[in-house]
Design a protein around this nucleic acid. Sequence first.
DNA 1: CTGAAAGCGCTTACAG
DNA 2: CTGAAAGCGCTTACAG
Lengths: 374, 374
Amino acid sequence: MPKKSAATTHRVVSSSEAHQASAPIAHAAKMERRPTINDVARLANVSKKTVSRVINESPFVREETRNRVAAVIKQLGFTPDPQARGLAFRRSFRMGLIYDNPNAAYVINIQEGALGALRKSGYELVVHPCDRTSPEFLSDIEQLVTRQKLDGVILLPPISEDDSLAALLKSLKCPYVRVLSAPLDEIENLVLSRDRESAEQVAEHLVQLGHTRIAMIAGPASYRSSHERLAGFSRALTERGLSLPPEFVIEGQYTFESGAACADVLLSRNPRPTAIFAGNDETAAGVYRTAYLRGFKIPDDLTVIGFDDSPLASRLCPSLTTMHQPIRDMGRTAAEKLMARVANLPGPTPSASTFMPRLVVRESSGPPKPPRVT
Amino acid sequence: MPKKSAATTHRVVSSSEAHQASAPIAHAAKMERRPTINDVARLANVSKKTVSRVINESPFVREETRNRVAAVIKQLGFTPDPQARGLAFRRSFRMGLIYDNPNAAYVINIQEGALGALRKSGYELVVHPCDRTSPEFLSDIEQLVTRQKLDGVILLPPISEDDSLAALLKSLKCPYVRVLSAPLDEIENLVLSRDRESAEQVAEHLVQLGHTRIAMIAGPASYRSSHERLAGFSRALTERGLSLPPEFVIEGQYTFESGAACADVLLSRNPRPTAIFAGNDETAAGVYRTAYLRGFKIPDDLTVIGFDDSPLASRLCPSLTTMHQPIRDMGRTAAEKLMARVANLPGPTPSASTFMPRLVVRESSGPPKPPRVT
DNA sequence: CTGAAAGCGCTTACAG
DNA sequence: CTGAAAGCGCTTACAG
């Protein structure tokens, strides 16, 4: 009480007096205690409400006052306490990142992209790995959102594809951004990767190389991107006078093991494919494995294409031709969209929220052998 | 005011009256507002302080009272607001995870291990990737710790090796746990990986296979683990009557590229080594690359051993023999140590905080050719 | 443009 | 074993 009343009642003292009076306190503050809005108010000779206005960039502060307060803030190294701020604002300044994705590089990159955008705006990121096959999946997330009072959440595939989750978040009035491979929601709620359209680049690349017996190991049916990549690839081949016959399409699981198993089936076909488009890089690594075990040389005997451009792609021998996604940028964009929505500001445009994966040609692709064209 | 005073002043009403009186409010709460400690207090017909005691498991509550309050808490689905709790406790219930480590799988695993332990105790994890080469490195972290009022931080290598950072945290009175490959601090502050001792397993393995010309690509001198792995490996070879000659030891950077470059040098030696212990899996992948380009078959022409057992290790062809670390467990242990320290409880013992990497033998290791023993 | 009061949802003293 | 008051550090709504 004494300290407090001293601060508030005697505010009329001159600025220099205030300095003197508070010198020892300021010193103690520097050493033991973070400066609070009250310290700033006292030293700047204004009310804490005015300090609050300066912090929150209210236009209703005289410039001179603003400068004076800003100077004290800087001198003290004051930053508002996020918890107190959150409590008073009835907002948490916290965003969630919810994922159930085994690809560590993907998650880390999204996370760092989002973190980069959030940090400078004073938001925190609450990371929430989860298990979408668990019966508590939805209730866990409901708990997370309500307990932590999340201001918004970023959903990564495959849970971003779950409409019941999106509905739940909507009912909780929790803004969300879904990182998705197809426009399954309003663009406002999306960071979109145009997997379908981009798969055309793979088709074009293989056709250019002269392949005609082309196979694909699709991702699991439960992933939307599986369908997108397959549909786009198939259509693009057809448009080029080729086709993706049923015996050359197998459903994998986006995993190393499934890639190996599916490749084993494909390479037993007669005639066998001369090129395999794997659903992702993990699957492609599985194809490498089977080729290695069966003595097929890549790319001489077999061309392999992946998707993701994960670190793995460049570490395989031969290095893997694959589709590159700007994952970090997608994470940053997702965070920016969320913050813009919360602040009721425009934010990234639809086109800035749409990403087109691009082909990175490496060593795993080459012309078919024996050459078709003599 | 009206709502509040009604709640506090009329607390003497019977439990059923309280129920009736608050029914509409309770309903509204369910729909629009999270229940607060006041709602619980009113319905349980106790003061909020008593509710607080129940939440915090104070022994000074009569069992009957505790049960009544607990029932209401359950019925309402009440959970304390972390921000309000943090503000009042003068604690944030937040731990930091600070890293500057390019290995995504490593970071994700530590993170998920830590998250698993923290979540059930109501702690959050603030993830903070950083750049230790930046001039603001230390001040950034100081800002992070003070602004977020972190209750503790987990430091991953290589920044866990930075004594000035540890000193800074100590001066900020911020408990920390360093994930380290050597006991550079009191065990209380450590989750320890015994890299030096574990490297003996690699030596033993190579000796068993019959190798005599053995090389190592060490990690960068700026990583403590580099020295540990090198020292342990070298000593173990010596103990077995072999040696690690200077021309067979090169400093790499723990990266794919450096692994390839160092392998190129080593494989140009005459005689060349028949086995290379790479500092980590990334480096080993670089060795694979050079072997691939120069036409060396692994393991027939060259045995390669890695360290980490990252996902990459099993995806390479041939699969990579490497040292496995229980990274997730290490993350969990780090979080548990931190929470125990904050709560002033025992926590994981020194031996539970010490992890011994173990050899996983895969396809990349075999006897040398031409065989030494005829 | 500025401030005094009340409140966010919890806890810490301090009483009983 | 239990509670009334004051406080954590900020903001909202209301005045001027």
